[in-house]
Design a protein around this nucleic acid. Sequence first.
DNA 1: GTAAAGCCCTATGTATACATAGTTGACTAG
DNA 2: CTAGTCAACTATGTATACATAGGGCTTTAC
Lengths: 241, 241
Amino acid sequence: MRASDRAYDTLRQEILDGVLTPGTLLGEVDQAERLGLSRTPLREALSRLIADGLADQTKGRGTLVSSISAADVDLLFELRLPLEVQSARLAAERGDPRRFSALAERFSAAEKILRSRERQRDHTQDHAEEDEHYYALTEELDEAVSDAVANPYLSHSLRSMRAHLVRARRLAQHEPERLAASAREHREVCTAIASGDAETAGAAMLIHLRRSLAYITAQHETAQSAQQHRSLTPNREEPPA
Amino acid sequence: MRASDRAYDTLRQEILDGVLTPGTLLGEVDQAERLGLSRTPLREALSRLIADGLADQTKGRGTLVSSISAADVDLLFELRLPLEVQSARLAAERGDPRRFSALAERFSAAEKILRSRERQRDHTQDHAEEDEHYYALTEELDEAVSDAVANPYLSHSLRSMRAHLVRARRLAQHEPERLAASAREHREVCTAIASGDAETAGAAMLIHLRRSLAYITAQHETAQSAQQHRSLTPNREEPPA
DNA sequence: GTAAAGCCCTATGTATACATAGTTGACTAG
DNA sequence: CTAGTCAACTATGTATACATAGGGCTTTAC
């Protein structure tokens, strides 16, 4: 594997994971030293990140990790909605029904686990591992849809969009009740695709995305009002300069 | 302007114009000499072209201009349809009605010119300049929609898609009657956007794209049967090796 | 004390030199 | 004559060295 590819993969993942926060300066010398390679392959990696929209290069200050905010979620969903609905429709027409039936079963099982957790009001325990398992399942669905659609142009746009979406969604936490509902919606998408009904698959996806967006928007509004509350009762932790 | 930007713009335009045909080997030394720069900025340009999907790098033979065929048109329209329909809807909600009313008028005028040409069966004269004028008008509409939508994520996907589309459409010629019909469809899209009716705007765009695809598909089938005819009556211009 | 101008420094943009891997051609053996 | 292997060459991948432009800090003048 080329050094520039490793640098690209590493930086991309770090940006997506939030390790490199928006506004971080990606100095060529610094990053090259950190990743153990020369400036030349690193610059190639930066070019690709800029092309992806994950970094912006300014005239005099260098390359910065691109900013992302709650407002971007709305813009991203304006792209995501038509792309995912179209993908679901095409997957219904072309996909292997067995693969999506199997996924539907697994989403159904995941929903039961999440609902039981919800009933127990079991917020004290750490369910991070279960959450990761669920996120991995949704990624499996994304991959299955992408395989079924078999359209590199559509897949490329989806992949590009999802990178930004991951960053934007990091701004919100998902509570168990939402995950359970999400699992149900995903199951319905899988079932519709497995049945080969494009219209239903698209509609199920539309419903899922609309609810996801509504939930994220509500989360953001909650976070914003908490922010406002904090700013009304300031507790200056830092001394004035 | 940076040398790598110039190289990228030049190579991209040449690929889109068909000057660099699919499969052409983009040797780093050759292209660097031709464009009058060093290998380093040229490699950066190639990276961006690869990220755009306009070039593919093979392991041992270097970077090639990516292939495009009639089959890609169907795949591209599977992406284009939802993107453009969504754009039209959002433009209707957000755009400046005056700008789209003005464009509707201009498409109406263009349609009249193209229809008159059609009536006269005026295929002998060279109307390349008029065609260019019409294509420029459609690009103005694309830009107006992009401005109205004001969504960088959506615009980026559209721009990426259109680059491939330009290459694919090069495989087909547009006859006057199709251009006139296209002008009418564009006018209806503009009118719907100007009226602020998102549903109608999306529907008008859908109609336009379905008809465009049907026309291009028919053109390709004609070309293919002509190809088959030629292969049935081969006239070996080149002597056997 | 503040603002403006100039200088220095740092980071990016480009070029070139070097290492390496892959491919192609030739030569030899069967 | 054909197939396989080896060697050489060419093109890519990487590193480093150099030029330049922009920014920040300091200094000076008002």
